[in-house]
Each structure stands twice: as structure tokens, then as C-alpha cells.
Amino acid sequence: MAMVAARAGVSGQTVSRVVNDSPRVDPTTRERVEIAMVELGYRPHRAARALRTGRSQTIGLVVTTLATVGNSRMLQATAEAAAERGYALTLVTASAGVGAAFERLLEQEVDGAIVLNEASAQVSSAALPSGLRLVVVDADADPGFTSVHSDHAGGAAAATRYLLELGHGTVHHLAGPSGSFAAAERERGWRQAVVDAGAEAPAVIRGDWSAEAGFAAGESLAAASAVFCANDQMALGLLRAFAEAGRRVPEDVDVIGFDDLPDAANYRPPLTTIRQDFTALAQRAVDALVADIEGAPGVAASVVPTSLVRRSSTR
């Protein structure tokens, strides 16, 4: 830092202010210091900064699996959102339970943690380490932490209403696994829309989010004329099952998914689906956690809107 100060012709305190992004630096001076940093190959020392500030500038991310596309997309979006705020990201899996994952994160001296999706269901029953700041994605509101989630129920209701408006007497539902907050909310939105329309809700067919589960559900849904799938991957398997059974989509049966994965537009036929904004979801989770870490005003629980994307799997 002293060498940077000498090269730029400023004080060490000025260099420190530039490194810490203080607004109390003249733009011309800031540019001169940043040029000197580049020329000398200067990089802030994370460990030294942690000793001085009491913060590691690192947040943890807890997941049960990265096999699902939703979790993988949230990992990428969270890493990008954390980097924008100047934080590194440490990933741990909750294979031995959320409590064990929290202990591993504390050993790595993270400033806080974000818990994703399936792992979120374990938080309320886990022993939360004292002092660990926490934001949970896809969980019921709890006074012990901030929760952030997509509007699963609203999106599911929009998909179901759209199918009913096409003239179907009812809508079948290929649901996600029991114990999943997102699956339960999507089922709730579907059921409420069917009941509100004065229709009878058929028995739920349950899958595990995979395309294989969607394919396996094809036989149980052979008589359906409209199906709302709890995610796009299961919808993909169901489309294959219908095709192999000689059922045309959308001529014989309308199908809607949930998530709007990048590949959904290239399914055959292109999939009508509910779009989740993974980027906004990750940014809200990171913003809430960083606000807590840095002592900013608290961020309330947040619900991220979803939207219906119409494609060719519906008439």
C-alpha cells in the first residue's frame, strides 16, 4: 500500500480509502491510485482485511444437491450477486444435515449464509449457531431469519387459470416432492385456482423434479387434457411420454411447466411455462444478507414475482 501511495503521489490513507471504495476521494485522485495499483500488481489481502474489520467478506451457500437445474442456476446467480457486492462465496452441501453444514461454514469464518430450496426445509428444526447471520430461500417466514422466495403459488395459479380459460373442465397437476416448500406452494396455487373455477381437483401425481419422473407419470396422466407440471424438467419427460403414447401436444393435451429453463423454448413443442427470475431472487437474498452483515437497515421478507410465458405446448 505504501508503494502504491508513493507511485500515485498520495498518502497511505488515501490508498486505503480507494481500496475500501470510500466516497471521500476525488475522482481524479481515485483514477491515479487505481492506475498505480494496476501497474504494481497490487491486490488487497483478504486475511489482513478480515483481521482489521472483523469480517471475512465471504458468505456461505448451503444446498442439498446441485443435480436440479434450479439449484444450479441459483448457485450461479448467487455467486454473481455476491461478487457484485465484493463478497466471495463458499459452497457446502447439507448431506449430513443443515446443522453440520453450518458448523463447517463457521470453521471457515464466513460472515453469513444463504440456504437454498430443499435445504431450507431443515432450517427450522436445526440448531442455529449463535451469531450466524442467515437468509433462507424458499421457506416459510420465521422470526429467526429473513426469507426470500418466488411467487410459486401465484405463478401456479396463473398457469392453471390459463389452462381453464382454454376450455378445459379441470387441470391435472404433476407435483414436486413432498417436503419441498416450492412444490407445496405450487400445488396450493394450482388447487386454489381449480376450486375458484368451481371445478374438481384431480388426484395429484407426485414426482421428484426429474425428467424421468415426468416420463413415468405419463401413464397416470393418459386421460388428462390439461396438465400443469411443477417444473420444466418433469414437463420434458411428460412430453416424451405423451409422444410415445401417440398423444399430440397441444392438439390432444395442453402442458405447462414452471421455471422457464433456457432449454424450454427448444422442447418439442416449445414449452409454455412460468418464468422464475433466478437473478432477482439471488440478488434479493444477497442484499438482505449483506445488509445484516454490514449493519444496514433490516430487509423484510421478500417475494419475487413470476410470469407466464406462452409457447406452443398450449393451444
Rank of each mutant, 00 (worst) to 15 (best):
A67T: 15
R7A: 12
A264F: 02
A197W: 04
A291C: 11
I256A: 11
V304C: 12
T28S: 15
R85K: 11
A81G: 06
V38D: 14
A265D: 11
Q283N: 11
L75A: 07
L281C: 11
T273I: 04
Q57L: 09
G54N: 06
A201H: 03
D254I: 00
R55C: 01
S125Q: 15
S22A: 15
L238T: 02
V249M: 06
G257W: 00
D287C: 07
R46D: 04
C229H: 02
G179P: 11
N231A: 05
E165V: 04
G54R: 13
T314H: 05
E294C: 07
L221C: 05
P44E: 12
V63C: 03
E39N: 12
T272G: 04
A159K: 08
D208I: 06
A48H: 03
S312D: 13
H172N: 14
L221F: 01
A81Q: 04
A157V: 05
T28F: 12
E31R: 14
P269Y: 10
Q108V: 07
A193R: 10
A121M: 10
A226F: 06
T58E: 06
G9F: 02
G218W: 05
Y42T: 03
D142L: 10
R73A: 10
P27F: 07
A67G: 08
S16K: 09
N20W: 11
V110W: 07
S11M: 13
R275K: 13
S220H: 12
R240L: 14
R206Y: 06
D111Q: 12
F258D: 00
D142G: 08
D232P: 03
G198D: 07
S124A: 15
A5R: 02
G198S: 08
T306D: 12
E109I: 04
S22R: 12
